[in-house]
Nucleic acid binder design. Structure first.
Lengths: 180, 180
DNA sequence: TGGAAATACGCAGTACACTAACTATATGGC
DNA sequence: GCCATATAGTTAGTGTACTGCGTATTTCCA
C-alpha cells in the first residue's frame, strides 16, 4: 500500500472510532497534509524504510545496518572504539553495545592497546571478513532499493544533497535528550 | 567540525592506536569513501542530525520529534491508537509507549471507545493544545534548519524526492529484526 | 446463535541513539 | 616527580523502533 491509497481509502481505514464524532475520512487527509511535507518526518520514515529493506535483503545474516557499517570500517583498519564511533557517527556509549554484540557473534575481537591502556582496539576476525564478503552484494542492493523509485539522475542528485546536509550538520547528532 | 575537516586532519584524529600498524591517516579517508555515498548511511546520519536540531530548538518543552508528530495528528482529530500509528508510521507497540509518555505528561488522555471496547481513543488535553501552539514556530524552524544548507530550489527538490521515496516505500518500516 | 477468525491493545525482548555519572589510564605544567 | 586535567571506556537510565506472544473484544458465517 502507498500513502495515496491510504489517504484515499483503498487501504485500511478505521471506520468506527465513533466516540470522536469528528473522525471523518478527511481527518486523515488533514493529518497527512500536516506531516508529509516536514523534512524531519520524511527523514524518519525513510530511515525506517531503509532499515526494513536492509534487514529483508540481509535476512539470514542476523546483522543490522549499523553493525554492517562498523564491520565495513574495520575492513579498512583496526581501530579504537572512539575512532570507530566518530567515523560512523554514533556516540561511544552506543558503540560499546554494538561492539559487544559484534564480539559475541564472533565477527570482531577487542584487545587492549599496548600503547594506551585506556583504549580497546577492535579488529575483524576471519569470520567477520568472510561475512562481509558474503553479504556485500546484498547490502549494496538494500542501499540501491532505498532510492530506486527515483530516476538515475535524480538518485545522484538526492545522494549529493544528503552528502551536503550530513557534511554541514556533522556537529549535530549525539543529541541531547533532557528528560524533565 | 565538518567531515572534510575530520578526514583531512584539522579536527580530532587518533594518533597512537599503535597496535594496528596499518592505522595510517588515510585509513579514515578509506572508511569515509566506503560509507559516505551509501544512501542508508546518509539517511541514518541525517535523522540523527534532525533529532538533535529539533531537541535543541525545542529544549525546555521536553518533547521529541515523534511525540510532536503524534500531537500534531491529534490536533486534527481524536483517534484510536492503531490509526495514529498508521498515520505517522510507527508500529502499535511503539505507539503504546509514546502515548503513555504523552499521557503522563498531561498532553493527551485516552478513553475506551464506547462503540468498540478494544479501542482506546486518544485526544489532546487543553495543555496539549497549548503546548502545540507554544512550540509550533520552533518545531518549524527545526525542520527548516535540517535542510537549510541547500539552496531554496534544491530544498524543494530534496523534499519532493523524499516524498516520492516515502510514498513508494510505505509498505516497509515496521521492520523485521530476527535475532537468531 | 455459537464458535472460529479477526482485531485492538499490552508486555517482554532486542537494537540503536543519546545523556550523565563513574572508573581507569595518560598527559602536561609546575 | 607529582598532581590537576583530559581522555577511553563502561554502566544506568530514557526514548524510538521493531517482533512475537498473550488477552480481551468484536465480527462473521455456518
Amino acid at each position: 500500500m502507498c500513502i495515496s491509497q491510504f489517504i484515499h481509502g483503498t487501504a485500511y481505514m478505521p471506520r468506527q472510532s465513533q466516540p470522536a464524532p469528528d473522525t471523518t475520512d478527511d481527518s486523515f487527509q488533514r493529518i497527512h497534509d500536516a506531516l508529509a511535507h516536514r523534512p524531519g518526518f520524511l527523514i524518519r520514515r525513510l530511515h525506517q524504510i531503509h532499515v526494513a529493506l536492509f534487514l529483508e535483503e540481509c535476512a539470514g545474516f542476523n546483522i543490522t545496518p549499523v553493525q554492517y557499517s562498523v564491520l565495513t570500517a574495520l575492513r579498512e583498519t583496526s581501530l579504537d572504539q572512539k575512532s570507530i564511533a566518530i567515523a560512523i557517527g554514533i556516540d561511544r556509549a552506543t558503540m560499546t553495545e554494538v561492539l559487544k554484540r559484534l564480539d559475541s557473534a564472533g565477527w570482531i575481537h577487542r584487545v587492549k592497546s599496548v600503547a594506551d591502556n585506556r583504549r580497546r582496539i577492535a579488529s575483524l576476525t576471519p569470520a567477520g571478513r568472510d561475512l562481509l564478503e558474503a553479504m556485500d552484494e546484498k547490502a549494496r542492493r538494500a542501499h540501491e532499493r532505498t532510492i530506486a523509485p527515483l530516476e538515475k539522475a535524480e538518485r545522484e542528485q538526492f545522494v549529493n544533497y544528503m552528502m551536503q546536509l550530513v557534511d554541514a550538520g556533522n556537529d549535530y547528532g549525539r543529541a541531547t535528550l533532557k528528560i524533565s
